[in-house]
Amino acid sequence: MKKEFSVMPETFTEAYPGEFTGFSWMDFITAIPSPLFVVTTYKSNGKENACLQSWSTFVGDDGQFICIIGSVSKRGHLYQTLKETKCCVLNFPSRDIYDKCQKTVVYNNFDDDEITMAGLTSEKAKTVNAPRIAECFLNIECELLWEHEHFEGSRDVTVALRATHICMDSDHYDENKLGRYGKTGYMYNIHNPRNPETGEMIPECFGALEMYK
């Protein structure tokens, strides 16, 4: 039986102060998964910046490969560095290094080398002025195309990036070895699914994609 929702269910309570300001309550009903990756840039002081990111999609258009990042906070280092350098690298981790990638959320001060302090290895990109994470199985080097507010005065923006170069581990593009999917491949953000009738919440977690034939 389908049910209709135009306003936030009364059963929903914030897991932390400001949760429903930072996110829509609709996000938690739909709980649509999105790939997890780390966006890396250089801050104006030359230090590494790393932002664990999701809510994004990838499309090919007229021979170009485009990443649409759905939500970048205007108040964060990622937005600032994208404005300054016009480029970044998208780094896709496998689950064995996820805990280290999560540490980039902790080590995010302006004077921090965020990749190195998280226990990961920084290496120079080939085509853009941004660092790559060596341990990630896929690195996509990108140039900034445009940004757009979600709505007038919104605190976040959507950005479009054009891929300029790809570096990928050969064991991951070989589906007979580690592959791109399953427990050794792409990770997906599953954002606090909630039951609108009971308010029951599943803690934030990540999942993998299983191929069906």
Rank of each mutant, 00 (worst) to 15 (best):
E10A: 13
F12E: 01
E14D: 02
Y16S: 06
Y16I: 04
P17A: 09
P17S: 08
G18P: 00
G18D: 01
G18Q: 08
E19Q: 14
F20D: 00
T21M: 13
F23D: 03
S24G: 09
W25H: 02
M26L: 14
M26H: 13
I29C: 01
T30A: 14
I32L: 14
P33I: 04
P35V: 10
V38S: 00
V39C: 10
V39T: 07
V39F: 05
V39Y: 02
T40Y: 03
T40G: 00
T40R: 05
T41E: 00
T41M: 04
Y42G: 00
K43L: 07
N45S: 05
N45T: 05
N45K: 11
E48G: 05
E48W: 10
E48P: 00
A50P: 00
Q53K: 13
S56G: 07
F58Y: 11
F58M: 15
G63E: 05
Q64F: 10
Q64Y: 10
Q64W: 09
I66K: 07
I68D: 02
I69A: 03
G70L: 04
G70V: 03
S71K: 13
S73K: 13
R75W: 13
H77E: 06
Y79M: 04
Q80S: 15
T81N: 15
T81I: 10
T81K: 08
L82A: 03
L82W: 03
K83Y: 09
T85M: 11
T85Q: 14
T85D: 07
T85C: 12
C87N: 05
C87A: 09
C87R: 09
C88Q: 04
C88R: 05
C88G: 05
L90E: 00
L90D: 00
N91H: 07
N91Y: 05
F92V: 07
F92L: 04
P93I: 06
S94E: 04
R95S: 12
I97Y: 00
I97D: 01
C101A: 07
Q102L: 15
Q102Y: 14
Q102T: 08
K103Y: 06
K103D: 02
K103R: 12
T104W: 01
V105F: 09
V105Q: 13
V106G: 08
V106H: 13
N108F: 12
N109E: 12
F110M: 14
F110C: 08
F110D: 11
